[in-house]
């Protein structure tokens, strides 16, 4: 996976995680995108935005502060 298909949203305030994920998903239109978050609010928000745009999500919880959201379409 290329680096461009990855958004590191750790430590960012609302709405940046969801906004950056949405921008990346719209740019890709299909393929895969990985978004890294470090809190439940960002995880919920990014997941909801991705689902609204019709993407499937796999969650890889590596630690409490590093959750990888893998999106596919």
């Amino acid at each position: 996976m290329g680096e461009s298909n990855m958004v590191d949203a750790r430590g960012l305030s609302c709405p940046q995680p969801a906004m950056l994920a949405r921008q990346a998903l719209q740019k890709l239109s299909k393929g895969t995108l990985e978004v890294v978050v470090d809190n439940n609010t960002a995880r919920e928000n990014v997941s909801r935005i991705a689902k609204n745009l019709g993407w499937e999500i796999d969650i890889d919880e590596r630690s409490e502060d590093e959750v990888h959201l893998m999106m596919r379409k």
Partner: peptide, 19 residues
Amino acid sequence: SRFCTVGAIRDMILLRDNH
């Protein structure tokens, strides 16, 4: 619930999300 009275307006405009 992450209730936010400003996020409500912001997310609707920016993300088209009415959550």
